[in-house]
């Protein structure tokens, strides 16, 4: 296991949001965390990289506990692509270079710059390297954020809704890229996602959260209509198209709708 989340519990000021949450992600694996709004998907990511301190439980990367590490030491092992990152009057190159921050001492080294250049090239961003990030489209900027996470050279990459607010083409491009990166590097990635079908298309494993607990942690073959119905509370059918499950929400009884006929 590259990443082990072992019995994490956490709450903000009130009751627990996450209760005894455990799962594992293997090297080269892209895992999707799914569940309804407010179930604690983002909170879970923040507990993994210790932006939030869990009440109890432990996160291990390659068997090493993260709880003894400083923020900077965690950042050398875990990269986080937040749902919202602010573009600014900074070039793409400098925005990506920032990902070297946890590895830098006092100044930017030649190695940092070389790594940034190679990453921009890997993601096909070299043409944009001197463009300011506030002049970029959402898709371009999201790639810059992912590039920043890559130069961090993490063992685990966490992404919060990496495809939210992107068009179909950009969604696919980002996820294909992510999948490719995870496959060729010694790392794993965990992303939260709302769009079930997109997640089923690209992720290797699926962690369904319900009421602060892991309801099911399954591979692609474990996806059934029952699991989705239990987690989201809506009737669905799961069809298989080639090797990929596709979820179709079923139209419930019309009489249940407040604006139904009559």
């Amino acid at each position: 296991m590259m990443l082990e989340v072992d019995g994490i519990s956490f709450g903000y000021d009130g009751p627990a949001v996450l209760e005894n949450t455990s799962f594992g992600v293997r090297t080269h694996e892209l895992a999707a965390v799914m569940g309804p709004n407010g179930v604690g998907k983002t909170t879970l990511l923040r507990c993994i990289n210790r932006i939030l301190r869990p009440w109890s439980g432990e996160v291990r990367i390659q068997g090493r506990k993260l709880s003894g590490y400083s923020g900077r030491e965690v950042a050398r092992r875990v990269a986080y692509v937040a749902q919202r990152s602010e573009p600014g009057r900074v070039t793409a190159f400098d925005a990506v270079l920032l990902g070297r921050k946890p590895h830098m001492s006092w100044r930017v080294s030649r190695h940092d710059i070389e790594l940034t250049e190679a990453t921009l090239r890997l993601l096909g961003l070299e043409e944009l390297s001197l463009r300011h990030t506030d002049e970029m489209s959402g898709g371009e900027y999201q790639k810059v954020c992912i590039a920043r996470a890559i130069v961090q050279e993490p063992s685990v990459m966490l992404l919060d809704e990496p495809t939210a607010s992107l068009d179909l083409r950009n969604q696919l491009e980002i996820l294909r890229l992510l999948r490719g990166i995870v496959k060729v590097h010694d790392m794993c990635a965990v992303m939260t996602m709302h769009d079930l079908n997109t997640a089923f298309r690209y992720a290797d494993s699926f962690i369904f959260l319900k009421e602060g607990r892991v309801h099911a942690a399954v591979g692609r073959t474990g996806i059934t209509a029952d699991v989705v119905e239990e987690v989201y509370g809506v009737p669905v059918a799961v069809q298989w198209h080639q090797d990929h499950p596709v979820v179709l929400p079923l139209d419930g009884d019309r009489d249940e709708l407040p604006f139904g006929p009559g």
Binding site: N49, I51, Y80, A82, S85, G88, G99, R148
Partner: peptide, 11 residues
């Protein structure tokens, strides 16, 4: 400047 969350993620 890149956002509090991003900054925290960078340690």
């Amino acid at each position: 400047d890149a956002g509090d969350e991003t900054a925290r993620g960078l340690g």
